[in-house]
Design a protein around this nucleic acid. Structure first.
Length: 264
DNA sequence: TTACGCCTGGAG
DNA sequence: CTCCAGGCGTAA
């Protein structure tokens, strides 16, 4: 579940589970995560209190009392699961963070592509990201796209252009802005740039609205409702504006869904 | 720019 | 069996 809205919901869960608590143990359950977070790094976190959990783009930063930072990235399939004391770790748990109240925050990821990395006090990770969607302006987007000759959709996946967009929300934003994903990024007109900024914000806002699992007492909401994407994963289905069928093409090795009729 | 490695599971 | 998957770093 890993684009900006999903990561934000996850960060809220991590924040509620961790902040103010003391970490008592970190356990890695898979060789891939042992490479990104060697046991000796996890050991340095044990005993420390968690001061804050922050999200930047699709990254989560866990700040510790001594200034150390844990950088967690879900990649394709990562997610948090909160496990009560004594309960077994969920399937596909890759790293577990046990706190002093007995709860464990489990980093669950079937593909094990997720990463968690330790950053010593005074050496915070430097992540170069573009503006968050809610800070994005037409001026900033125009500047970011001015020299980009490639098609707009893969460019939107570049985190230095906008932070947090992934394959779903890039497609959703372009559909909302009625822009053909194959358009060279630097060729977007002024009205198209304005529409794209609006489209990005609307797509992300819609994503937030779909996140319900972090609200107290609503466990089980996630996944129950079928997704309500505008174009993503709708190949062959009618465009929601009543045009023809949604098409799927490959760009930069990834699927792009769009309406050939209303996106130009 | 595209291609591939990283990993594993699910769908057809 | 083959293909596909909400990401990203590196290589060619």
């Amino acid at each position: 579940m890993p684009e900006l809205p999903e990561v934000e919901a996850a960060a809220i869960i991590a924040r509620r589970t961790l902040v103010g608590r003391r970490l008592v143990a970190v356990t890695t359950h898979h060789a891939a995560q042992r490479r990104s977070l060697p046991p000796r790094h996890g050991a340095r976190l044990a005993g420390l209190r968690i001061a804050a959990v922050e999200r930047r783009g699709k990254s989560q930063l866990v700040h510790f009392s001594d200034g150390a930072v844990l950088l967690v990235h879900f990649r394709m399939n990562g997610d948090w699961e909160v496990v009560a004391e004594g309960a077994p770790a969920p399937a596909y748990t890759r790293v577990a963070f046990a706190t002093d109240d007995g709860v464990r925050l489990c980093l669950v990821d079937p593909r094990a592509l997720c990463t968690a990395t330790y950053h010593a006090p005074g050496k915070p990770p430097r992540i170069t990201l573009g503006p968050e969607p809610d800070q994005l302006t037409v001026t900033a987007l125009r500047a970011a796209l001015a020299r980009r000759a490639g098609p707009i959709k893969p460019v939107l996946l570049d985190q230095k252009v906008v932070a947090g967009l992934g394959n779903i929300y890039a497609a959703e934003a372009l559909w909302r802005a009625r822009i053909d994903p194959r358009t060279p990024a630097r060729d977007l007109s002024a009205p198209q740039l304005a529409a794209l900024v609006k489209g990005i914000k609307a797509a992300i806002a819609d994503g937030f609205a779909r996140q319900g699992r972090y609200r107290a007492g609503t466990a089980g909401t996630a996944g129950t409702r079928a997704h309500a994407f505008k174009v993503y994963d709708r190949e062959g289905l009618p465009c929601r504006r009543g045009c023809g069928a949604i098409a799927r093409i490959t760009q930069a090795g990834r699927s792009t869904y769009f309406c050939p009729t209303c996106q130009e």
